[in-house]
């Protein structure tokens, strides 16, 4: 009878999710020490963005990512994108991944808008930081937290 099968299906699914999460957590932890806030701050400093201002960056990420293996991310920086005033580079950092670096996106005025999107791996619930370097050498920064249900640790 279907009325009896329904709860069984749900509980089986729960078990699969739990086992999967446990396996992911168990397999992940001994392997690598995850990056932390300090490593991310060091990476930001290395990129020259120490003491970056805020505002002007839209960092588009889901609040909750069920699968950390592929999380869509979009970033847009307000800029006229003219030869004299444009966004040079946007760096993305993940504070809770084995390494904070995710990608560095290099724009030119020919892009028209400083806007790009990609898909990233997130090992666990963590902050994502976007750091934008402008053509005049100034920096801006934005942080968004993403809750990750099942971590994507190295795929």
């Amino acid at each position: 009878m279907s009325s009896k099968e329904t709860p069984r299906e749900i509980s089986r699914r729960h078990v699969i999710v739990l086992v999967g999460a446990a396996a992911a957590a168990a397999g992940m932890l001994p392997r690598v020490s995850l990056a932390d806030k300090a490593a991310t701050e060091a990476a930001i400093k290395a990129a020259g963005g120490d003491g970056a201002g805020s505002g002007g960056i839209t960092l588009d990420l889901p609040q909750i990512a069920e699968n950390g293996n592929t999380v869509p991310v979009g970033v847009e920086v307000d800029s006229p994108m003219t030869a004299g005033n444009y966004v040079k580079t946007v760096h993305l950092f993940a504070e809770g991944n084995p390494n904070p670096e995710v990608c560095s996106i290099h724009f030119t005025p020919a892009n028209g808008v400083a806007k790009a999107s990609t898909r990233i791996r997130l090992a666990k619930t963590q902050n994502i930081v976007a750091l934008a370097e402008m053509s005049d050498g100034s920096f801006k920064q934005e942080t968004v937290e993403v809750k990750v249900t099942i971590g994507g640790c190295g795929g």
């Binding site: 293996n69 592929t70 999380v71 994108m81 993940a94 991944n97 084995p98 390494n99 670096e101 995710v102 990608c103 560095s104 996106i105 290099h106 724009f107 030119t108 005025p109 020919a110 892009n111 028209g112 808008v113 806007k115 790009a116 999107s117 990609t118 898909r119 990233i120 791996r121 997130l122 994507g152 190295g154 795929g155």
Partner: peptide
């Protein structure tokens, strides 16, 4: 003429996707 590029780390998901824009002239 190069107008867009990106450096990717291992945190980029499998089958990497990227979208961006260009002003058509």
């Amino acid at each position: 003429k190069e107008f867009f590029s990106a450096d990717w780390a291992p945190a980029i998901a499998a089958n990497p996707y990227m979208s961006f824009h260009m002003r058509a002239t």
